[in-house]
Design a binder for these strands. Structure first.
Lengths: 248, 248
DNA sequence: ACAAAAGTGTTCCGCCTACACCCATGC
DNA sequence: GCATGGGTGTAGGCGGAACACTTTTGT
């Protein structure tokens, strides 16, 4: 943070926030995309986002854009900064840097069309990774980096619970891990690990009866942020595990 | 990344990069600080950094400021984005957001005064954490977050080697862990872990004779970025471990 | 010979994996 | 009863912590 009165080459640039919002629905990882209504990249899909306003916090801008473009209330989501992307050529309109946010949330009631009437749609991440859908700008890079971060965070933090609607069962939580990692985990050992991790889960005492089988105990998120010991994706993989998602 | 032709409240803001550069010297963790030559915060110490120029990559701006303000060639450092700080009130001059970078490097030959003649000085991190030195702007927040990140990264990545000048001994590498974590580790088990981690260390075949004791084998960094299994700071703590650094 | 630091061997214990088994429900 | 998923028990094995021990140097 230097003041260089002499060399005043410092540009004033436009700053946007972009949101990479993941959820698990229908057994697959989905990301929320909007269809662009204007140039550049008109008609293409992109991550929701928009310009930061004068005097607005970055986090506040992220929450506002989330609400405006998708109708989602961000207070129930896990939201954190991913990275700032500042390639001078990343936006054809000129110098625009973007602060990308990673958001994890439960399957939303319905992604409402935004105030400015563009669709907001849940899209399987797999379709983008396999090249069947192209994203505007450098948004595919953001998605890949965010996906790797999310997978990593599941190992060392308790964010997986952010994907579940409270109260939730342990099987639902395990399903999150299985879908995001593309693995099948041993149900018994998974249970022991997460119930043993201090502050991860709080039993509600209630149970939910599924269509079939024994009713499952319901839990809420505990106060713990970090998960110790970590839940490594390399270990405890169940036999016959199909790779649901293409890695890298 | 939305174009909102209607509501053009989006501000064009100044963007800076700030550098949080850690090194280990004289048995303690140090951070590189400069003394500010102008208002605001004139005379106070701050992280090195400066404005991003027109058409300049963020990473390039970080490397340039590093060279200009401290005389350090960044190509030998580990450099990565930490986080972007965008509180509208963080700079009294107006809206300035900063992209903070975390850099880890070996003890530098000497922190040269920068081109604009301000001092650049290695300062013990402890002195800042204990409140004996106050940093300008929100730089203490950046330092605390970066320190936590560095400590975390030592567990799961191979960045600790970035603190060492190649070639280095295992004892030197262990010393890095001990200083950053503020613990004493068991030398034998540490050796086995790091030599066993695939791609962490490459033996050079050479040895270095210290002033006393058996000569130590010399290593270079291997290609591995991630460390598996992780080297957890909670475990393998040697008896009688003084906490060299105040946590949080 | 002794001190000091590098490096190896070995025991013990805890945890984690794998899998068998029991429980609670709907049909 | 039987199928299905929730939940518990347990044996075996792997790996890590602790620490004794050997090696290689300088004085």
């Amino acid at each position: 943070m230097t003041e260089r009165a002499s060399t005043r080459d410092h540009a004033r640039v436009a700053v946007t926030v972009d949101l990479l919002i993941f959820t698990v629905r229908q057994g697959a990882l989905h990301v929320l995309l909007i269809e662009r209504g204007h140039a550049p990249f008109e008609g293409q899909v992109a991550l929701p986002g928009g310009y930061v306003r004068t005097g607005e916090h970055l986090d506040a801008a992220a929450l506002r854009e989330l609400r405006e473009e998708t109708g989602i209330d961000g207070s129930r989501l896990h939201l954190e900064q991913l990275r700032t992307y500042g390639d001078p050529d990343r936006d054809p309109r000129g110098r625009v840097i973007t602060v990308a946010y990673l958001a994890l949330g439960p399957d939303m009631p319905a992604a409402q069309a935004g105030t400015d009437a563009r669709h907001a749609e849940w899209t399987p991440v797999k379709a983008i990774l396999e090249g069947r859908i192209n994203l505007a700008f450098d948004h595919e890079v953001i998605l890949r980096e965010g996906l790797e971060r999310a997978r990593f965070q599941l190992e060392y933090t308790t964010v997986a619970a952010a994907f579940c609607t409270e109260p939730f069962t342990i099987a639902e939580l395990r399903h999150i891990y299985e879908v995001v990692w593309g693995l099948t985990l041993d149900a018994s050992n998974f249970r022991r690990k997460v119930t043993g991790a201090h502050g991860f889960l709080i039993p509600t005492g209630k149970h939910r009866t599924q269509e079939i089988g024994r009713p499952a105990a319901l839990y809420r998120r505990g106060p713990a942020q970090l998960l110790s010991p970590p839940l490594l994706r390399s270990s405890d993989v169940h036999r016959s595990s199909p790779n649901l998602l293409v890695l890298h």
